[in-house]
Design a protein around this nucleic acid. Sequence first.
DNA 1: ATGAAAGCGCTAACAG
DNA 2: CTGTTAGCGCTTTCAT
Lengths: 346, 346
Amino acid sequence: MSPIRRLTDAQPTLATVAERAGVSRQTVSNALNNPELLREDTLARVQEVIAELGYTPNRAARQLRTRSSHMIGLRFEPAPEGTSNALMDRFVHTLVEATAKTGHHIVLFSGDPDDPLDGYDELLRATAVDAFVITDTYAGTPQADLLHGVGAPFVTFGRPWEDPSARHPWVDVDGARGGELATEHLIEVGHTRVAWLGWERESRIGEDRRTGWRRALDAAGLDATGLGVRTTDNVDAARMAAHELLEDGRTTGFACVSDTIALGVLHALAERGLRPGADIGVVGFDDSLGAQVTWPGLTSVRQPLEQVAIEIVDLVNTVLSLKAVANPARMLEPTLVVRRSTLRDG
Amino acid sequence: MSPIRRLTDAQPTLATVAERAGVSRQTVSNALNNPELLREDTLARVQEVIAELGYTPNRAARQLRTRSSHMIGLRFEPAPEGTSNALMDRFVHTLVEATAKTGHHIVLFSGDPDDPLDGYDELLRATAVDAFVITDTYAGTPQADLLHGVGAPFVTFGRPWEDPSARHPWVDVDGARGGELATEHLIEVGHTRVAWLGWERESRIGEDRRTGWRRALDAAGLDATGLGVRTTDNVDAARMAAHELLEDGRTTGFACVSDTIALGVLHALAERGLRPGADIGVVGFDDSLGAQVTWPGLTSVRQPLEQVAIEIVDLVNTVLSLKAVANPARMLEPTLVVRRSTLRDG
DNA sequence: ATGAAAGCGCTAACAG
DNA sequence: CTGTTAGCGCTTTCAT
């Protein structure tokens, strides 16, 4: 353990350590950054003094000299109220852990919600961060253009929908595969009329997921006519849409673009006295808390957010090391978490 | 707008601005930090050049000189899977926004989950942060002791349960009042046997909330015998506990220490064919996403997390300014969000 | 009201 | 392998 020292006490510096160890400051610096340059006994002596004094290099000084802050910026948006988005929690935590391994930290900043570019520039010019992780790419990636324009390193969670030719590194989850997984599962447990409850057509992510639904139906030779419905991402809108689809008494499977919408379907079932699982199969998307705790449990597509974070950090590190990025576009596969909303003998 | 400049281009410094404006570096520094010292025309000229060049002070240099990073550390723990804790999302976002107003940023760091002290020391010694916000105080506040010991500024979200005499600044929400609100509401809508489903006795927060339940029953002259139950914070455990209480057919109100537990009660009702609201009243705690989207909507106690964040930042700023803190302990009131799980004519 | 000098703690570049 | 020198960009102190 390091000795206890009040902040008001003088912090030990390189010079303190150097003097105490009887070497020059540069040698201490090397002991820290290029230990292989030192003779073994010198290294040992220096390290001993470092431990003894509880010395930690001053970040500001190092940052000023090396022009690298070891900070990574993340613009932090709040999850819109009523939306299943505790996702960020899993993602951000892994991000923090993964960056810590290389001595980096995550700096949160905010920005005008109406201006996706707000905040980036300032941190950059202040040389406060080395790179950015960008998560809100659903509305295009003007941030990417900005950062690319000034030559700042960044990685996005989300592919560049608007510009597939964009060459920046990104990590994303295959939403189409998710929709397909959901639909295949519903077909497998015996549903033949499987509806899709999606977001508005403007949502690239929503349309992507929907293509997976369509692909699965086609592969199984099932009819999709009249079964693809678009609605807004809230429980009530989804509830109404579900009621309409349930009118004919023939639609028994619901693949949904989000857990919120799937929960709306469950509400509709409750109102009609239909049993989730036994009568009607429902699958959500995101494996949010709601899916886990709702009654009777909602089958849902789960994104590998931890893996996304790890891949992103890997890409950030590669970019920062100025190495060419071998594989700058990484698509990860979602999985299906089965719960009772699709169990027929529930 | 600032001019576009690639990172590889030389960033303008104080010297650049000074030369261009025909003043000394010191004058530019004053224009930034003590504008009232400059003559009006000088100030205007300097500001013009700053805007023209898109100059932003280098944080590292400033930090090295002033020994203040304008960074605030927050140890970021993941919400345990299956727990209603998207709370942090609301809290952290407001924290980020509020700190931004004074030019501060939030730095996330992680630590060994088994060591509540891990991570603090290092950031401190590296002079990477000016202060900490501590959120995980439910298991006592060893961090507070550590930071107090080294004289580092910090504010906790959560009162010092273990040591009420502790003098550090904190903000907390009155959990007892929350339990009381929940219980009063259930009594108001006509329930006379109101059970409490709480956490294990070891949880200070849980016991605090419970006292509010007891207070409300006593005030209404209702019997609490056999109605106070403790269980673990998961849906299934709560479901079982609810079944037991429902056996006698007399218990009709459930005040719960968390939304997770309240959702367990809703499961039990579903399994018994009882209607939430009409037959049995259920109130949760935290107004989590689950409470909002579950069917038929869960009445829940809501913590004013945004206000907590704002108060915390206010305290951090006060502490950092070295002013005496007038009111270092701030208790905020929760509110009740009524949904259909307590509406009798639902 | 403005300027000159010094130095925060570190590492890059070079010399030995 | 180790030491010396210089300077990153800023603010503090003191002089004008």
